[in-house]
Measured scan of single mutants.
Amino acid sequence: MAAAAAAGAGPEMVRGQVFDVGPRYTNLSYIGEGAYGMVCSAYDNVNKVRVAIKKISPFEHQTYCQRTLREIKILLRFRHENIIGINDIIRAPTIEQMKDVYIVQDLMETDLYKLLKTQHLSNDHICYFLYQILRGLKYIHSANVLHRDLKPSNLLLNTTCDLKICDFGLARVADPDHDHTGFLTEYVATRWYRAPEIMLNSKGYTKSIDIWSVGCILAEMLSNRPIFPGKHYLDQLNHILGILGSPSQEDLNCIINLKARNYLLSLPHKNKVPWNRLFPNADSKALDLLDKMLTFNPHKRIEVEQALAHPYLEQYYDPSDEPIAEAPFKFDMELDDLPKEKLKELIFEETARFQPGYRS
């Protein structure tokens, strides 16, 4: 834990890192770190609560700039109880001085990944967590956004079992017609939660990839272990087919990539493993919904509104309290091709509203 900075004593240090967030945020305490930044909790002297502050230093890398800009653009436009918001952003007053960006968010005690390492969940908890994931996802999908990296560590939890989806750095506007060349190379989302079509096709992607990830998360809540822990690309596919069985001819016809289709045709026939054999203690309604989410063919996979209306979630289902976005989200430009200098300018502009004396 960093010592509390005395008023006016300059930035606090946390594990050798400068955290320049005073005077409003003090009493910093280390939480963890990701690929390009550290997260601390801090005391907000204005709202009198502890908050989470993520320090991001992305400006050396085009990919990190892209992810940072995506996350900020999306989260500043989203407003939903099951999606983490941005409360404040701290950065230098000029673009030349801006080396880091500090993002202030609600402090959540833990995440689903940490929880599943230590606790076996009751059916009631599984049901409530799944409902909140789908409630947040309904809003995301209504904005025409794909999260693309749903996994237990991106689901934040607090002691009252509130759940918030975080990390929109890989999110995209849904565009089933656009052929994202190089899709697989830039697709760094965790393999275990990846839909089979991501490994088999490169053309376009749809909201059904997020539903697949939610199915993987439900299976993990039922058993405290990942359902498809593939060691590499082909191993991942083999794990999936080992449980779902061989795809039907109709399902194979959806695979545009001939090499991928021929690979699947070359494999020995596998039978589907019954879900109640894998999860003998699970609620039968939970397994019915799991089956509809972990469907090989993305066109037959359940959609988020149908999933919310499934009998497993009937005690929570309330369409009048499951809000959607006001308007579909649009990125003005494809960020993939922009140089990091341009992305830095866009991050600077996007964060201006939090600067003292800002006038829109």
Rank of each mutant, 00 (worst) to 15 (best):
S41M: 13
T159M: 08
V21M: 12
P311C: 01
D167F: 03
K73T: 08
K114E: 10
H147N: 13
R91V: 11
V21P: 00
T206V: 05
P298M: 10
L346F: 00
I140A: 06
T63N: 10
A219T: 12
G357S: 11
R135P: 03
A6Q: 09
F296L: 15
L218A: 14
S208K: 09
Y113E: 03
P323G: 07
R359K: 13
L28K: 04
D251N: 11
Y263W: 04
Q132A: 08
E314R: 04
Y312C: 00
E60T: 11
V46S: 10
L130N: 07
Y30G: 01
A286H: 03
A4N: 06
R194Q: 13
K114W: 04
S360R: 10
Y131V: 06
Q315Y: 01
I84D: 00
F78Q: 12
I83T: 00
A260L: 08
L134F: 12
C166W: 02
R225H: 11
R194V: 09
S122G: 00
D124Q: 06
K272Y: 08
P247W: 05
I243C: 09
R261H: 05
N27R: 08
I324G: 08
A286M: 02
A92E: 05
W212R: 14
A2R: 05
N253D: 00
Y128S: 10
R277Q: 06
R301A: 03
C65W: 15
Q236Y: 02
P196R: 11
S266Y: 01
Y317L: 05
R50E: 11
Q236W: 08
L294Y: 05
T160R: 11
E322A: 14
K340S: 08
L163S: 11
R301E: 07
Y312L: 12
D283V: 13
N82V: 01
V51F: 13
D332R: 06
R191C: 05
L112I: 07
T181I: 11
P298I: 01
F19M: 04
I90C: 12
A309I: 11
E186G: 00
N281A: 07
N276D: 09
K73P: 07
T295P: 15
C127H: 07
L287H: 07
L290E: 06
N276Q: 10
M221P: 09
T63P: 15
L338I: 06
I324H: 04
C166I: 07
D124H: 04
A325F: 01
H299E: 11
A4P: 02
R50W: 12
F348V: 12
E220Q: 08
E350D: 15
L155T: 01
M333V: 04
Y36E: 15
T63H: 14
H80W: 01
M38I: 15
Y193Q: 06
L157R: 07
E350K: 14
I198P: 01
A7R: 10
A309M: 08
Y187R: 03
Q105S: 07
Y233S: 11
V173N: 02
C65Y: 15
N262V: 04
L116Y: 01
D288W: 08
D44S: 11
Y43N: 15
Q132P: 06
V21H: 01
K117W: 10
P311H: 14
I133L: 12
E186N: 01
L338W: 01
V214E: 15
I243P: 05
A195N: 01
A42E: 11
D124I: 04
L130T: 06
P280C: 11
V46I: 13
I53A: 10
I83K: 02
A6W: 10
K344G: 09
V39A: 14
I165A: 02
G242Q: 10
I126V: 12
F329L: 15
T181E: 13
G136K: 05
P319H: 07
Q315E: 07
D177R: 10
V46N: 06
H299R: 08
S248T: 14
D251V: 12
L294N: 05
P311L: 10
W192R: 15
G10L: 12
Y312M: 06
P268M: 01
D175V: 14
Y187P: 00
L290K: 02
R261V: 11
A171N: 06
I53L: 11
S266R: 15
P152M: 06
T26M: 01
I324D: 09
V49Q: 09
T181N: 12
Q17N: 06
E305Y: 05
K73S: 08
L234K: 03
L335C: 00
F59K: 15
I227D: 01
H269L: 14
